[in-house]
């Protein structure tokens, strides 16, 4: 540790590598340890994120795209990333925190399926979004109120039942009735949803699966 405290560039590189290795080996405990080492060594937290974590999660994404790894590895990498970020983010000055956008996400009213929503939520977080996870069985009004409160740019509504997808439309209709439709991009997803459904209800995009939802969120973060 004394060597780490010396903070020369070689030591920093070792720290970045240990964080990167933790993400690439899907190891939350190792990510936590590496993040704590970096904090003790007083390395700039933003630099740690940018040099250690972000390239690693990018590599994980590339592996997933090439089908070298599957969804479970992707989830574990996102969790390891989240563990390290939870420790490092509070140390980054607020004016330097650059999230792509805030996303208010939840499973719609009447529906308590949460696995798919949680996958997307974790992956959004790992990909640089500020995520407000509203949980399951979320009322239409709550989606909108929480999105406003958190200054979210994107609302993400998940529905897993053909009997509950109508609540996705309710969110959009409610925004229209408030004359606030343009303030938020609304993306929808879940088993029974389709691209046509998304078009039909006037959503801004449909997330077919977690990976495409991240791409969609990246696009929506830049503007509808």
């Amino acid at each position: 540790m004394s060597a780490l405290l010396g903070r020369n560039s070689m030591d920093e590189k070792k720290l970045f590598k240990s964080l990167s290795d933790a993400i690439l080996s899907y190891d939350s405990a190792a990510a936590e340890k590496a993040a704590k080492d970096a904090i003790r060594a007083k390395v700039d937290a933003l630099k740690v994120i940018e040099k250690g974590l972000v390239p690693a999660i990018g590599k994980v994404g590339d592996k997933f795209e090439k089908m070298e790894i599957y969804l479970p590895e992707l989830m574990l990498a996102a969790e390891a990333m989240k563990t390290a970020m939870t420790l490092l983010l509070p140390l980054v000055p607020k004016d330097k925190i650059v999230s792509k956008a805030t996303v208010a996400i939840g499973t719609v009213q009447g529906d308590v399926h949460e696995i798919g929503k949680n996958i997307v939520s974790n992956m959004l977080m790992a990909n640089g979004f500020n995520v407000i996870d509203l949980g399951v069985d979320v009322k239409t009004t709550t989606f909108v109120e929480e999105a406003k409160r958190s200054n979210a740019k994107i609302i993400g509504a998940s529905a897993l039942m053909s009997s509950t997808i109508g609540s996705q439309k309710d969110i959009i209709d409610y925004l229209v009735s408030l004359k606030e439709r343009k303030k938020f991009a609304v993306m929808v997803g879940g088993g029974p949803t389709t691209g046509e459904w998304s078009d039909e209800i006037g959503a801004d995009g449909w997330g077919e699966d977690a990976a495409t939802t991240i791409k969609l969120a990246n696009k929506l973060a830049k503007g509808k």
Partner: peptide
């Protein structure tokens, strides 16, 4: 089983 790539049914 889930689709290992997407988690879908």
């Amino acid at each position: 089983s889930m689709d290992p790539k997407t988690g879908a049914y």
